[in-house]
């Protein structure tokens, strides 16, 4: 890969495999390259390996084999300190939300900005802006544990987006949402994408990716199956 190509690449996976004991092959020989500023939908059935892939991209799990590079950083060689710095540039909306139930919505969202030492003013205005966009402004001071699943999901998305990351990884971001609120979330993601943010959205909600020009990577039984358009992802040795 040339220097210019490397600069333009946000995610680079080469022959990544992951097996969980005793012998669950979550990912097998997955190669994928995503350029900066792209919005990719990672689709597939439950258990196909989407969440495993996202967890490895944010450094929670490590691959058994293969190579992962995010924004030019090789995750297998990165120090703990560098990984933490990298995580501040990645926003993750987890499938299980990872919210603190005894904290307010505002406090939950603020965490991602506080670790980057954002100003108090920025944190407050950004939190209000995102909650307004996601239709949750009236829940600003509500405890996260008291919210519905759909509301918690939106708070988790707001936290992922809040620190203006370069990369957003979203795991089933519309899984608990009705069509209208899913539309709000997608609107937010598109706006981020237009601002240059790279997005990788793991979903099996066809409604959010079924539009002309969408870029889709399908994963089946831990292997990349279909890519649309094919130029962004390659299987096995045929990696670009």
């Amino acid at each position: 890969m040339s220097g210019e190509e490397k600069r333009l690449t946000m995610i680079d996976l080469a022959r990544v495999s992951k097996t969980f004991p005793p012998d669950v092959h979550a990912l097998a020989d997955v190669s994928l390259r995503i350029r900066r500023g792209e919005m990719i939908f990672l689709t597939g059935q439950s258990g196909a390996g989407k969440t495993t892939l996202l967890r490895m991209l944010c450094g929670i799990d490590r691959p058994d084999k293969g190579y992962i590079e995010i924004a030019g950083s090789d995750l297998s060689r990165i120090s703990d300190n560098e990984l933490q710095k990298l995580r501040r540039r990645i926003g993750v909306a987890y499938q299980d939300f990872k919210l603190l139930p005894d904290k307010t919505v505002a406090q939950n969202i603020a965490y991602s900005m506080e670790v980057s030492y954002r100003s108090r003013q920025f944190i407050i205005s950004r939190t209000k802006q995102l909650l307004t966009e996601l239709g949750l402004m009236d829940k600003l001071d509500a405890l996260a544990g008291k919210l519905s699943r759909g509301e918690q999901q939106r708070v988790s998305i707001a936290r992922a987006v809040a620190n203006e990351p370069e990369l957003i990884l979203a795991d089933e971001p519309t899984g608990n949402l009705d069509a209208e609120t899913a539309g709000l979330v997608m609107q937010l993601f598109r706006r981020c994408n237009e601002e240059g943010v790279t997005l990788l959205i793991a979903t099996h909600d066809q409604a959010i990716y079924d539009y002309p020009g969408s870029k889709i990577v399908r994963i089946e039984n831990g292997r990349l199956a279909i890519q649309k358009p094919p130029v962004i992802a390659k299987q096995g040795e045929g990696r670009a």
């Binding site: 933490q84 990645i90 990872k98």
Partner: peptide, 16 residues
């Protein structure tokens, strides 16, 4: 426990 786990996930430094 959960808060510290979250802090690690959002990129809090060791010093933080």
């Amino acid at each position: 426990k959960n808060e510290l786990e979250l802090l690690r996930l959002v990129g809090a430094s060791n010093s933080y």
